[in-house]
Amino acid sequence: MNEVLKAENLQVFYVLETLGEKRIAKAVHGVNLQIPGNEVYGIAGESGCGKTTLLKVLFANIEPPLRAFEGRVYYCVNDKYIDAFSLSAREKRELRWTYISYIPQGSMSAFNPVKKLKVTFLDFLESHVRGKDREELLSLTNHHLKTLGLSPRILDAYPHQLSGGMRQRVAIALSTLLKPRIILADEPTTALDVVAQRAVLQLMQDVQKELQNTIVLVTHDMGIHANIATRMAIMYAGKIMEEGSTEDIFNHPLHPYTQYLIHSLPKIGDKTPRESAPGSPPSLVEPPPGCLFHPRCPQAFPLCSQEVPELVRVNIDHKVACFLRGNNRASCS
């Protein structure tokens, strides 16, 4: 057993009450995950499919209107699995940034604009490291930035003096300062152009190689997953539709949704018309019955609208939730 992070049957919903009317958005709906150590684990899916909510749950940061109805998240700390939801606020704080850290979406805009970056780094270190004075903390920061190939000069800059790509890399440097075993990164390269994006991905890979830890990377860009993820999961409307090694997902996508995601991508040197998946993503408040993808699926048959397919293993290392594949009762292949 080498999983560093496990999630079992997560049922985490947004409970919205407006004018006495209760609406439940099923953002994470029956998700099971086993994330091994020393990997880059990609989670792909379109906006509003629950990827960000899933990361928040894995970080054990569940605040209203988000509520966990069922399920557990386990962290593997010192070879023992601990239940992340039962930790006290103090215990959580001790694990954060030393064991697990989180780079939320848009974190490059999260720096205090009226403070130099040095102050942000020191604030952060002083609240997580005890028994060291400012000089020691600063030299730790300098050393860390140098190993990541960033100039320690940026500590004297204000956030607005740096470009977006640079700020994103500083945010990554900050989150990896205490050498966490798990880094949860939410869309770290969205809003960056291709060159800055490449620099950020390069940095994340360097960090991962050096620390031999696990990065859970959430993005909708399949190109990024193909480039740095070692394993990946495809999420659709709060459920995992397919899971496997990156090679398997890209070379033999099994779920019709994954096939759409991969085949709709334009390629340079190929002008043949490409189609997006028809229709639009389902509402999480009133999800369709049966398989959530069936209203948009070109291969749907009657069973798909009646029963929910389970995520089952079809190959040694490849799982899919589709009646067309695997042993989901009515197998038609």
Partner: peptide, 13 residues
Amino acid sequence: LESIPKPDPQERY
């Protein structure tokens, strides 16, 4: 062109 992440795990940076 080289910096576009290609949707193919064989073609990494």
